[in-house]
Each structure stands twice: as C-alpha cells, then as structure tokens.
Amino acid sequence: MGLVVAENITKIYSVVATKVSKDYKVGEIAIRALNEVSFEIEPASFVSFVGPSGSGKTTLLNLIGCLDKPTEGKLEVAGTDVLHLDRKQSASFRGNNLGFIFQDFNLLPVLTVFENIEYPLLMVQKIPGVERKKRIMALLEAVGMTDQRDKYPDQISGGQKQRVAIARALVTNPKLVLADEPTANLDHKTAFLVLESMKKMRNEFRTTFVFSTHDQKIVGEAEIIYSLEDGELVGKQVKGGQKNG
C-alpha cells in the first residue's frame, strides 16, 4: 500500500487537463469550442485526438501547446500549471518543453534543412556548437535526411519536409511533441512513413507524441485515441485495451 502511495506521488503526467473549456467570441456570440474536457497523458505515450472538423482537436492542441489559454478549467503540461504563464513565460516554456509539428510543415524557407533543425537550439536554447551539431546529425540520421542537409525547403518533397519538421520538433529534447494534422498534406504512403518516424523517435527519445487527425487510416497508428465531438471528449481507446465512453 505504501508503495502504491509513493508511486502516485511521484507520477508526473505529460498533460493533465481538468474540466478544460474554451469559448470563442464570434461577434457578440460566444461559441464553446471545448466543454469541460478532462484527461491525462502519460510520458512517452503516442496519443491521437480524433474527430470531425470543428470537434475541437486543434483548439485542444493549441491549449496543450500554450498557444492559447482555457476559458475555464485547469491545465498542467509537463508538470507546470500553464494557465498563469505570461507571453514571455509561455514562449520560454514552449521552447524548453514542447515541440511542434505543423500540418503545412512550416519550415523557414530561408534556412537549409540543417539550419531549420538548428534554429530552436540557436534561438531558443542557446546550445553550444559541438553539442548542437551532434544532436542535429543524430536526428538527421534518424529521419533519413542526412544527405539533404544543405537543401532548402523548396528543394525537398512534402514527406521530407515533415521529417525535417519532426527533427526540428525533437532537437530540443522536448517532453511533449504536438502535431496538428501532421499527415494531412501527405499521401498515405508518405503519411505512414512520417508516423513511423514519429514512433521511432518516441521509442528512441522517450518523448510523448500528441497529434490530431481525422484520417481514420492514420488513427490506427496511435496507441491511445481520444475521440472528440462538438467540443466534448466522447471516448478513449487504448490500443489492445478497453474502449471507454
């Protein structure tokens, strides 16, 4: 019994959301995008939020990513209550704890593949040169982009761009990587390759991956699937486990 108590005390979730709601104002009308959503995400999980367009997936990812703040509820990310962080603290928190993978890859066009991955280390974490190069080369190797390191984003394919984006998201050793529709702009074959890369990264670096998708074929790759509908969490499915909701 004592052992169980000790385990509960030391367990740090990647994300703990408690009755999180988010309202948007469109003109005079307030629209509830998320309604009292509660969940926990354990470290090194491979979690997907699924649901149709407008179900609140992106809103939820934005809240977890400290890009937006809940209207109500409590939200802890990587052990930090993110509700009371100001603009600068939020930016600093994101840079040190989170990685982002965007649907449109969002690589900086003026930087090469190598420099895009290097950007967060230079601009956010100020990692020394030798360590920087070591990390980037390891990630380039892991995502299979070593030979493309000096190319600019407009010289590589969509799948390659997303792999670079994964490397960029992971290079800071984040506790959590958030990916909003990471495969939406990729064909199925490339999408699976990208997901495989993400899984491989998770296994290698023990990073938590949280992504949103409405592509059912991609959903199958997730280990924990949360279903959202009209801003409410309607189900949780654990791969090889029970289905709730």
Binding site: G95, L98, N106, L108
Partner: peptide, 16 residues
C-alpha cells in the same frame, strides 16, 4: 505572418 507564428510557437522570444 505564418513564419512569425511558427518561430513564436517554437519558443522564439518576442524580443528576438
């Protein structure tokens, strides 16, 4: 604007 959003999202401080 989107690039600014990207670099801000990945943690670039407003001063930078």
């Amino acid at each position: 604007v989107r690039e600014i959003g990207t670099i801000a999202a990945i943690g670039t401080l407003p001063g930078k």
